[in-house]
Write a protein that binds this DNA or RNA. Structure first.
Lengths: 340, 340
DNA sequence: CTGAAAGCGCTTACAG
DNA sequence: CTGAAAGCGCTTACAG
């Protein structure tokens, strides 16, 4: 706004012949003001094109009306759709949304948390990927934080899906269709130490499913590429085949990975679902349009966004209440990629 | 931050035994301060966990350090990837990014522009879809605005691709491969009045290509679904086939549409590229992994983001300079969907 | 129902 | 190189 002569409440007050306080009352609408006064003030605001200075309001109120959303990679279809819903819900509730991306550099989550207080933010919705529990521990120095996704600690409000159970359900689904050697793209027991929470939780669920069915785990079937892009999904299949590993199904831990898997199998002349079954996770829009259409796990992303915002707003008004967890339901969507 | 006893510069000054001014000098780094003083101040800041209040700074400076990015639909793979790059570049240059979505409601672009001054924003990157020129006209009441995409007016800084030429090149490519009856998904001459600028510009380029080759336009081949989702692309093909229209190629104005087109053709037993050639626009990550892989138009989205930010920063420091246009190059990527 | 005063936490001239 | 004062534009008690 540099260089522009913005009108202030004082200007509006002068033009309308009232005090700045009255203008403030009209703008915020918290106090009753006589209708003819309101009208005069509004006319003056219109004439001067008055827009309240939110920095000043923020300084005074200690609130900016902005929340931040931090996601690992904004370019991922899943993240993009989630952001879309969060922006929509936030808009309905009067919040602006600031975005941050955390996957690019290792220290970005910590940096973000430490800067969060500075950045005019009333709250933060964070989908953690490498976040150490320790960082979340000193919450008293942070604005309200809601964690979303595969969250393992319990010190913060969080919105979850039961990924472990979903992943087990996928394993059951494949085993029921005859799969015995299920490759896993996105999970690798040997690398569990450095893996993301998402990877660990989904792998655990998968292993639950194997164990139930009495199938012995074969770590040669597990591969966890980074990052979880479509290209990486395709490369993972090439790698497995290169290793000479036989498999009759592939579980991919995101749809983006799964679409790469489908592509690589197709390129090698492996038929899906006749030779190999394939599943994804997330149900992004394109999954229904993959060839063949992809069996996957759908969660209600709108509900996800709503719950996150609700927790955040509740936390803003009750800083010391005990942390809460909300679980959003999921659903296995069966499509052609596992329809034998 | 409500409820938290945040340390202020005054507190830091008191603890370090200096004046607030000195603390400010240390924080901003604009003035030389004696090293031992710097050290004392930094120790005090660390002890008190001091973080500057950006509302106060913004009020004082008239700058917030935040820019806004407004895109029609954040869930679109193309928008998501563009946002990813903008956030990355903005971060490098010290800006936070606020996002807005404009497609949801008709008046959202106007609303956004009118609120822009209020929302603590130093500048706005806007990908307009229905924006009336009139709105951009009173730029003196807005923060710096850079328009991106298919922009037809010249009153504002803008980053463009030459979509019209790219679309003509696609038509040439198809015609060179024998196509004569090219269906268009995303452009419809009859509906040009209500279409988006993207649709109009790309359709114009397509018609250029037909005209060059002496091919007579057939409006029965044109269809412009809304919104431009994958589902809509599939539906458009069904609609064309339902109309009984024959075609030997399909030009889709985004990759998302094109992937829907591929799916619908496959479902109907139409082979690509043997029976029908298909092209997209944008080169999103998945296009290389479609079946068959998609011929499309690639533009450098990182360059797009960089140019937009550069124009915005230039405009912040020179409000009255004449508006500039930067054109980002594109490239036709030929893949299996047109490889006969 | 409306006014006059004070203050949110910074930074920018103005002095020293 | 550092201090004391003033002010950015709001809103919140405090009076009337």
């Amino acid at each position: 706004m540099a260089g522009m002569a913005r009108a202030t409440m004082k200007d509006v007050a002068a033009l309308a012949g009232v005090s700045p306080k009255t203008v403030s009352n009209v703008v915020t609408g918290t106090v009753f003001v006589r209708p003819e006064t309101v009208e005069r003030v509004q006319a003056a605001m219109a004439e001067l094109r008055f827009v309240p200075n939110l920095s000043a309001r923020g300084l005074r109120n200690g609130r900016s009306g902005t929340i931040a959303v931090a996601l690992p990679d904004l370019a991922t279809p899943f993240s993009a759709d989630l952001l879309h819903h969060i922006v929509e819900v936030a808009h309905e509730r009067g919040f602006a949304v600031q975005v941050e991306e955390t996957a690019a550099e290792p220290g970005r989550e910590e940096e973000l948390l430490s800067r969060a207080r500075a950045h005019l933010i009333d709250g933060l919705i964070l989908n953690p990927i490498r976040l150490e529990d320790s960082v979340v521990e000193h919450t008293e120095h942070l604005p309200p934080v809601v964690l979303i996704g595969e969250v393992e600690q319990q010190l913060t409000d969080r919105v979850l899906i039961d990924s472990r159970r979903a992943s087990r359900d996928i394993a059951r689904h494949l085993i029921a269709r005859g799969a015995r050697r299920i490759a896993v793209v996105g999970g690798d027991t040997e690398r569990a130490e450095v893996a993301t929470a998402t990877s660990r939780v989904r792998l655990a669920g998968h292993l639950d499913g194997l164990a139930e069915a009495g199938i012995v785990r074969d770590q040669a079937l597990e591969i966890d590429p980074f990052p979880w892009t479509t290209a990486a999904g395709a490369a993972a299949v090439d790698e497995l085949i290169g290793r000479g590993v036989r498999f009759d199904a592939v579980v991919a831990f995101t749809d983006s990975l799964a679409i790469g898997v489908l592509h690589a199998l197709h390129a090698r002349g492996v038929r899906v679902p006749e030779d190999v079954l394939v599943t994804g996770f997330d149900d992004v829009e394109l999954s229904a349009y993959a060839s063949p259409a992809l069996t996957t796990v759908r969660l209600d992303r709108r509900a996800f966004a709503e719950e996150a915002l609700r927790l955040l707003e509740d936390r803003m008004s009750a800083r010391t209440a005990p942390p809460r967890a909300v679980t959003v339901p999921y659903e296995i969507i069966v499509r052609a990629s596992t329809e034998v």
